[in-house]
């Protein structure tokens, strides 16, 4: 795995290099500023696989650097670990919003850092396998189908929707909170009740855009009331929100119902999908949560099993498939056009 480590502190750079080398990753390039890092990225004949970024650096900070790296197509999914002494929520949120995959606070434990880089290397291996599989197909349609061929339980990344994090990054965000203990998010899980039926009756590519459209409806409805959202697989979305600012109310439930109804979701046959969204009871941040655990996240998801009828958003009765060309289908065609 080819790593680029960026920090304006020479001692930290040496520590990072030796720490990851001892975990078996010896191909480490060191940069002492954001500009130098971008220069290395531009000129490197072989792309980097993973990035370790400090946040507080003069001229260009690590969050801006993270955004710039993410803007490069080849690095859209590469692991980016922020390694920083800045542990305030505002810095953490900015970093994850800019595309960070993980966040390690200084002073770091060398063994723990080695473990986190090893985890990142597994992600790199998975990405490489997915890329390899992509080239094994011939036609565009096959490539598109293959790109989104997945199990219903896969935590697909919802891209280009405000507030959505890749599920691994979302878990890392919560784990960081849990370890630090001084700020914690409330959590709510939402679930597409009939996801199994929808999955079995929908082509892979359409299924992906359906998840994206519902994710966008959730993001738009809860706008300004949540920190981050993620898609966990099995039709389940999870939402992290600030203490005391629950995004869920009767009003937002009603807005969400309307937003999803307006997607006019139908199967290829023209039959309505009858989407029902279940909203689980929120899990409030607790000071007694076990450090370094995802207990609250699992509890929020588990709460979906105890849904009352009032928490169900059944849009079937609102569906009026009055147009032949459905809005979400237009979007699919638009996106397919862009991909080609």
């Amino acid at each position: 795995m080819k790593i680029l480590a960026v920090d304006d502190d020479e001692i930290i750079l040496e520590l990072l290099k030796e720490t990851v080398a001892c975990s078996g990753f010896e191909d480490v390039t060191l940069a002492s500023s954001g500009q130098e890092a971008l220069q290395y990225i531009k000129t490197s004949p072989v792309p980097f696989d993973c990035f370790l970024l400090d946040i507080q650096m003069p001229h260009m900070d690590g969050v801006e650097l993270c955004s710039r790296i993410r803007a490069i197509h080849a690095y859209k999914k590469s692991p980016i670990l922020m390694i920083t002494a800045m542990s305030d929520k505002q810095y953490v949120d900015r970093a994850f919003a800019a595309g960070a995959s993980d966040y390690v606070t200084k002073p770091f434990d060398v063994l723990e850092l080695g473990t986190r880089v090893t985890i990142a290397s597994r992600l790199v291996d998975e990405l490489k396998q997915a890329e390899q599989a992509k080239f094994e197909n011939v036609t565009l349609k096959e490539r598109l189908e293959h790109r989104t061929r997945h199990e219903v339980s896969d935590p697909l990344p919802i891209e280009d929707v405000d507030g959505f994090l890749d599920y691994t990054a979302f878990e890392n965000y919560l784990l960081l909170q849990s370890r630090q203990g001084h700020f914690t998010s409330g959590l709510i899980a939402l679930e597409i009740e009939n996801i199994g039926e929808i999955y079995s009756r929908t082509p892979a590519e359409d299924f992906y855009y359906l998840l994206t459209d519902i994710g966008e409806a959730i993001s738009d409805t809860f706008r300004g009331k949540f920190d981050f959202l993620s898609y966990r697989g099995d039709g389940i979305y999870v939402c992290a929100f600030n203490r005391g600012r629950s995004p869920f109310s009767d009003e937002t439930a009603s807005d969400l119902r309307l937003a999803i109804a307006e997607l006019y979701l139908i199967y290829g046959s023209g039959e309505p999908m009858n989407v029902t969204i279940n909203i689980g009871e929120q899990v409030a941040p607790g000071i007694f949560s076990s450090p370094g655990s995802l207990k609250n996240l699992f509890k929020a998801i588990d709460n979906l099993h105890h849904i009352q009828t009032t928490q169900k958003i059944d849009v079937a009765t609102l569906l009026k498939p009055r147009r032949k060309q459905m809005p979400w289908r237009s979007k699919i065609l638009k996106n397919v056009g862009r991909a080609s």
């Binding site: 502190d9 001692i11 930290i12 520590l15 507080q56 002494a85 200084k106 002073p107």
Partner: peptide, 14 residues
């Protein structure tokens, strides 16, 4: 101070 804070404990100067 920020620099020392970030590295001292890792090197055994907690």
């Amino acid at each position: 101070s920020h620099k020392i804070r970030g590295v001292a404990a890792t090197l055994g100067f907690g």
